[in-house]
């Protein structure tokens, strides 16, 4: 018992102050939102397009990256002879509509807006989610799990991962949705009482990730269920996931953070 109390004292209080305080620091090599400088692109150069594993980069009219397909591997930045692509440290990436993940120098990322007033009244202070891994590699799943640990403690916001879809207000989907999970995902979605929301977490759940185009997968959650929040990354940092969820619930504005 004494050792237990001593351990308790040693471990201390570790829940992040965020969002009331600063977010936990991210390492300098963290790859967040990419920064594009199309004026640096040389005519006819396709070096970035050719190294991208998921055909996420387009060059016409100017360089643009589909963050939904992006694996954040940064091969494009390494391949670019002119430094037209660099990787910034901004973790805020989640959006409400799939097409908003197409980013260019012209078009900044439109970060997720809050649910409409009716859903916000329902879920704003109590959101129960059921997680479904559908072909996920257990990286997104592991970092979804992290949100429930005491460092992140999403229970503070009334968000909880629950065991049954019958107890849930929505789903978190990870993975490219393997054909072998398509039916199970659909049934789980159907088992959630309306109104309900779906959060697609990670490159796989958005567009298939490395499995883009495989006949063994449906190519993301959107192929099977309607999606309300898209969180890019491979896997997204827990802070990126939390940022998206809090924006969806309209809780970042209230914490004083400007968009």
């Amino acid at each position: 018992m004494i050792r237990l109390l001593r351990a308790r004292l040693h471990q201390g209080h570790r829940t992040f102050a965020y969002p009331d305080g600063p977010p936990p620091p991210l390492p300098d090599r963290f790859r967040g939102r990419p920064l594009l400088a199309p004026e640096r692109c040389r005519d006819g150069c396709r070096d970035c397009v050719e190294v991208c594993p998921t055909e996420a980069i387009s060059l016409s009219p100017a360089i643009a990256i589909d963050l939904g397909r992006c694996l954040f591997c940064a091969e494009c930045a390494a391949a670019c002879p002119e430094g037209a692509i660099t990787w910034g440290g901004d973790h805020r990436l989640a959006v409400r509509r799939r097409e908003e993940l197409q980013v260019s120098a012209e078009r900044e990322l439109a970060l997720a807006t809050a649910l409409d007033e009716r859903l916000r009244r329902l879920f704003g202070r109590s959101l129960k989610l059921r997680q479904v891994s559908a072909g996920g590699c257990n990286a997104c799943e592991a970092d979804v799990n992290v949100l429930s640990t005491l460092a992140w403690d999403i229970g503070r916001f009334g968000i909880r991962i629950v065991a049954s879809p019958r107890h849930a207000d929505g789903l978190i989907v990870t993975g490219p949705v393997s054909e072998n999970m398509r039916l199970a995902l659909r049934k789980t979605y159907d088992a959630v009482a309306p109104p309900k929301i779906v959060i697609a977490i990670g490159a796989c759940a958005i567009a298939g990730g490395p499995y883009l185009g495989h006949p063994e997968v449906a190519g993301g959650a959107g192929a099977v269920v309607p999606v309300d929040l898209w969180v890019p990354g491979c896997p997204p940092h827990p802070l990126t996931m939390l940022d998206g969820m809090l924006r969806l619930l309209g809780r970042l504005e209230s914490a004083g953070e400007s968009r």
């Binding site: 050719e50 594993p53 091969e75 996920g136 393997s178 072998n180 999970m181 199970a184 006949p215 063994e216």
Partner: peptide, 18 residues
Amino acid sequence: GYQHRGVERALIGGPDRR
């Protein structure tokens, strides 16, 4: 088998950018 996504099939013909 629920997580099958064709890894070994897709690796044939590589190594490539994926």
